[in-house]
Structures are given as C-alpha cells and as structure tokens.
Amino acid sequence: MSLRAPARFSAATLAESMQSALDYEIASEKASSLGRAGDAVAKSMALLRAYDGEAAERRLLLKQAADAVWAYFIQRELCGLRRHDDAIREYGIPREVLVRLGAK
C-alpha cells in the first residue's frame, strides 16, 4: 500500500511557495537599498546646500553628491523606475550635479 502526500505538500506547490518567498525577499531588499540610496542623496544635497566656503571643497561636495545621485538612479532603474524627473524635483538635485552625470 502506498500513500500520497496531501496536495498542499506536493513538490510543485512547495517550489511555488519557495519562489514566492524568494521574490518577496528580493523585493524587500530592493526597497531597502533604494531607501538607503535616497538617504545618501538627501544627506549629500543638504551638505551641498549648506556649504559656503572655498571652491575646492565645494567641488569635492559636488563629486560626492553626483556619486550619491548616480547610485540612487541606478538603484531606481533596478527597481523598474526609469524616469527620474520626480526624484530630481523631490530631492532638489541642482543642475550642476546633473551635468556631472552627463545631463544636458
């Protein structure tokens, strides 16, 4: 006599639930990473706006801001967000930072 496992424990159902759990974890990590990248942009924009000193140090802040914005844009694209106009407005990213990313 052989026994059959209940349908809810079948290999196909188990594989689907594992894939669903993995998809959830990946989406969660993407969202967390996007949040951290957004925090870095906000911090770099605040430092850039608050700075009122020598041009050499300002160039360093501009480079750091451009790096943070670039990383944020890449993370947005990985999350499926292709247009960055809303992020540029939200964070108040100045043109001088965008030019360093290749914007015209």
Rank of each mutant, 00 (worst) to 15 (best):
A46W: 03
L78A: 11
Y24G: 06
A15Q: 14
E96S: 10
D23N: 15
A21L: 14
L61S: 00
A103P: 03
A12Y: 10
D67H: 10
I93H: 00
G53F: 01
G53I: 04
F9I: 06
A27I: 03
L62W: 08
A11W: 08
Y72C: 03
R89Y: 05
W70V: 00
A55S: 09
P94N: 07
L81H: 05
Y24L: 13
I74S: 01
A68P: 01
M18T: 13
S20L: 14
D52W: 00
Y24S: 14
Y24D: 14
A11S: 09
M1R: 13
K30D: 11
S20C: 11
M18G: 04
Y24N: 13
D23Y: 08
Y24T: 15
L81T: 07
Y91N: 02
A55Q: 07
A15L: 12
W70L: 03
Y24E: 15
V99G: 04
R8G: 09
A12N: 11
A21Y: 12
Y24W: 15
G102T: 06
D52I: 01
A11K: 15
A5V: 09
G102W: 07
M45I: 14
Q75A: 12
E16L: 15
G38V: 06
Q19S: 15
G35H: 04
S32F: 13
K43W: 02
W70Q: 09
A46D: 10
L14A: 13
I26N: 04
A56T: 06
E90K: 12
L60S: 05
R89V: 14
D85A: 11
L81K: 04
Q64R: 07
S20K: 13
K43F: 05
S44F: 00
L101A: 08
C79W: 00
R82P: 00
I93C: 04
S33L: 15
G80K: 01
L61M: 03
L22T: 11
R58W: 06
R4V: 14
L62Y: 05
R100V: 05
I74P: 00
V97R: 02
A37L: 05
R83D: 12
R36F: 12
M1V: 07
A37M: 08
E29N: 14
L101Y: 05
R4W: 05
E25M: 14
I74E: 10
V69F: 03
A42R: 15
A11P: 04
L78R: 10
L34F: 12
H84G: 01
A42L: 10
A21F: 14
L48C: 01
A42M: 06
E29T: 11
H84M: 07
K63Q: 10
P6K: 14
S20N: 08
M45E: 07
H84E: 06
Y72D: 06
R82T: 10
S10C: 08
L61C: 01
G38N: 08
G102D: 05
C79R: 06
A68R: 00
V41I: 08
D86M: 08
P6E: 11
